[in-house]
Amino acid sequence: PRPMTRTGGSGGAVLFFAHRGEALRGHAGHPAPGLDPHRGPQAVTIPPGTHPATGGAYTWRVPPWVVPPPPIPPWLAALLAPPAVPSRPVPRMDGERMRGTLMRALHAVCDAPRGMANTTLNARAYALGRWCGAGLLDPATARDTLLHAARLRNIPPAEARATIRSGLGAGLRNPRPGG
């Protein structure tokens, strides 16, 4: 026993289940033809509503004040569960590629034209941050390399830390596609 209506369109049934917070998905015809699972904030018409196309009245077969809705059956929750997200291994740069990427960043900061060291530090922090965001480079390694380059270039430590934090953060929010 559960609350149930007779629809005003096809005369089909609407069954109500208690929701326990399960992640559910579905659409008309899923998980089987003739089913239309509604969940979350989706609306469902109940009596005394009428069907918008046919004008037919919705009626209660079993009203909710007679019996409370039972929990959704585990087999139905399993059919409506979202597909599992496949885990994929986090790719990493091989050692040689990583060293080359870090060395190019270090040299770019050290060799920047006069008055451009901090701008170059920011650009290289952003570029390394994108590698970090893609999971290919460790953020601490990128930060330490850039701090070393800033020290070599005599960028004041507080200024260098702020620039690196800003550049790495922006890069992390915009990861390199596909590495």
Rank of each mutant, 00 (worst) to 15 (best):
P1R: 03
P1V: 12
T5W: 02
S10H: 06
S10V: 03
G11W: 13
A13Q: 09
L15N: 08
F17V: 13
A18F: 00
H19P: 01
R20T: 05
E22S: 03
A23H: 11
R25Y: 06
R25W: 07
H27Q: 04
H30W: 06
H30Y: 05
P31C: 13
A32D: 09
P33E: 11
G34P: 04
L35G: 07
D36I: 00
Q42I: 06
Q42M: 14
A43E: 14
V44Q: 13
T45R: 11
T45E: 00
I46P: 06
P47A: 10
H51N: 05
A53Q: 07
G55A: 04
G56A: 11
A57L: 15
Y58N: 05
W60S: 06
W60H: 05
R61G: 04
P63H: 13
P63I: 04
W65Q: 00
P69G: 06
P71Q: 01
P71T: 05
A78W: 04
A78H: 09
A78G: 06
L79F: 00
A81R: 05
P82C: 10
V85E: 12
V85N: 01
P89R: 07
P89D: 11
P89E: 13
V90P: 00
M93W: 05
G95L: 09
M98H: 08
R99T: 15
L102Y: 02
L102W: 01
M103D: 15
R104N: 12
R104D: 05
A105L: 01
L106F: 15
G115W: 11
A123M: 04
L128N: 05
L128V: 11
G129K: 02
R130E: 08
W131R: 10
L136S: 04
L136E: 09
P139N: 11
D144E: 15
H148M: 14
A149Q: 04
N154A: 13
P157W: 11
A158C: 06
T163N: 08
I164G: 03
R165E: 15
R165K: 14
R165L: 12
G167R: 00
G167K: 07
L168S: 08
L168W: 06
G169S: 09
L172I: 07
R173S: 15
G178V: 10
G179K: 02
